[in-house]
């Protein structure tokens, strides 16, 4: 893709939701979400399972209607013409298992009116193999190649790295960043908080609502956690929880988010536990717990 391709698109916001909401009967799946994805931006949509990420994506893609508010793709409704500039990798990959790698790519490219690009090296040797016979990492790579075959302006990736090994995950993120550098707006959903650092900006969803957005540092803000290092971590964990301090395990460290270090130290001391107690910046996952609790 060249920069001139993007210049033809007037809106800086490639994807936008404005107070968008969606109800299924009595169930509120998404409520009052306002967000956007701009050119060259990698936006991470984070949240636990059932937080409303997939419903929001389906609204942005035009697969389901909004119950309230509005969504826009490339500055307008996500109609057929605008979707032709969109690349989408669903969680299930959307590949045909009974077709070969080459056939899948040919179909996808033709559906978007493009010609199939050359396969990357890793897939070239498997070009005539059925997709069902490929390892998951290669399947994900193929799904990416299919989504990029028509030079999209927007990429929407639903859990793109789910179930792949560390190396394959790194390669997929490299691809995502390459696209962003070329001006493509990328929206990535994930529930793996450690992938947050790969994104330029994060959107945090909890219980159908967008509870925070910004960079990782913006979202974490002044939230801190108390890290407890002790030999008897299992007992420390139990004691803190009994005392109403919601503790989490991080390796053999016990962490209590949004807690007072002095209070934690006191609880452990009362229980006769020797521990090193330090106040540290919270992680994005810990901040999420705070926001979800709120």
């Amino acid at each position: 893709m060249t920069s001139s391709d993007l210049d033809g698109v007037s809106p800086d916001e490639l994807l936008r939701a404005d107070r968008a909401g969606r109800r299924f009967g009595e169930v509120v799946a998404v409520e009052d979400v306002t967000m956007s994805v701009r050119r060259g931006e990698v936006v991470g949509l984070l949240g636990a399972n059932g937080a409303g990420k997939t419903t929001l994506i389906r609204m942005l893609l035009g697969l389901i209607a909004t119950s309230t508010g509005e969504v826009a793709l490339l500055g307008g409704p996500p109609d057929r013409e605008r979707r032709s500039r969109l690349g989408y990798v669903p969680q299930g990959l959307g590949l045909y298992g009974d077709l070969t790698v080459r056939e899948n790519l040919a179909f996808s490219a033709q559906a978007y009116g493009a010609s199939a690009p050359p396969l990357p090296e890793a897939l070239r040797t498997a070009a005539d193999r059925l997709v069902t016979a490929l390892p998951l990492g290669l399947q994900r790579q193929l799904a990416f190649v299919c989504a990029l075959a028509h030079d999209p302006l927007v990429l929407v990736l639903d859990e793109p790295t789910s179930g792949v090994d560390v190396l394959a995950r790194a390669a997929l993120w490299d691809t995502i960043h390459e696209q962003a550098e070329r001006g493509v707006g990328v929206l990535v959903t994930t529930h793996a908080m450690q992938e947050a650092e790969q994104c330029d900006r994060l959107l945090l969803m909890s219980r159908a609502r967008l509870v925070a957005q910004g960079s990782e540092a913006d979202i974490i803000g002044a939230t801190t956690a108390v890290a407890v290092r002790t030999d008897d971590w299992a007992r420390a964990f139990a004691v803190l929880n009994e005392a109403g301090q919601p503790a989490m395990l991080a390796g053999r460290d016990v962490r209590v988010v949004d807690a007072d270090a002095g209070r934690v130290r006191q609880i452990l001391s009362d229980a006769g536990l020797r521990a090193e107690v330090v106040a540290v910046p919270a992680t994005i996952e810990e901040r999420m717990r705070v926001l979800a609790g709120a």
Binding site: L61, L63, Y96
Partner: peptide, 14 residues
């Protein structure tokens, strides 16, 4: 079942 219906729905095909 295989999830390709959703991909078809996103594609610019009538």
């Amino acid at each position: 079942e295989t999830g390709t219906l959703e991909q078809l729905a996103v594609m610019p095909i009538r």
